[in-house]
Amino acid sequence: MEDLLNTRSQYSATKLVILYRLEPGCLGPDGVDHIVTFCQLAERALVHLNADICQWFLAPRFDKSLIEFQYSLAGKVLSHDKAVKFVASFDQQLDVIEAQFEDKLTQLINQYIARKAVP
């Protein structure tokens, strides 16, 4: 049992961490008032998305000079090309993973806006 726990902790330490910076405007004109809460809720909803390869984090994108997707592994920032290679080692494609993420994020945004509109 201890060996299994050690293997799992080593494996989780090798997951690709993907930080996605989300612009407040995606939540409507008052998105700036909701973006932090939405990011926290969305992170929880995304915890199982490609969980064998990556871990998702969301943050408000208040500074547009910052890139949308940022990749890191074991605390070290990776270039897009290195992230592609890492994901390919699992016989996966980063662009497919990102497309799945964006589809799920769109669903979450639509759900959040719909709930926000209900008085």
Rank of each mutant, 00 (worst) to 15 (best):
M1R: 03
E2I: 02
E2C: 01
D3L: 08
D3Q: 09
L5N: 04
N6V: 03
T7V: 12
S9T: 09
Q10L: 13
Q10W: 00
Y11G: 05
Y11R: 14
Y11W: 13
K15C: 10
K15F: 03
L16Y: 14
Y20W: 06
E23W: 01
E23Y: 02
C26V: 13
C26Q: 14
P29R: 06
D30P: 00
V32M: 03
D33A: 10
D33P: 00
H34V: 06
H34Q: 14
H34P: 08
I35G: 08
V36R: 12
F38E: 09
F38H: 11
C39Y: 08
L41W: 03
L41S: 07
A42L: 06
A42D: 05
A42V: 01
R44D: 13
R44C: 08
A45N: 08
V47A: 15
V47E: 15
V47M: 14
L49Q: 06
A51I: 11
D52Y: 01
I53R: 09
I53F: 06
C54T: 07
Q55K: 03
W56R: 01
W56S: 03
F57P: 00
F57R: 11
L58G: 00
L58E: 01
A59I: 01
P60D: 07
P60G: 05
P60A: 05
P60R: 06
P60W: 03
R61Q: 04
F62Q: 15
D63Y: 01
D63T: 00
E68K: 10
F69L: 05
F69S: 04
Q70K: 07
Y71W: 11
S72T: 10
S72P: 07
S72L: 05
L73D: 07
L73H: 11
A74T: 09
G75A: 06
K76A: 11
V77R: 10
S79M: 12
D81M: 11
D81L: 13
V84L: 07
F86C: 02
A88V: 03
S89P: 14
D91C: 13
D91S: 15
L94E: 11
V96H: 15
V96W: 13
I97K: 02
I97V: 09
I97A: 03
E98S: 11
A99K: 06
Q100R: 14
F101G: 04
D103Y: 14
K104N: 02
K104H: 05
L105W: 09
L108N: 14
L108R: 12
L108E: 15
N110A: 10
Q111W: 10
R115N: 15
V118N: 09
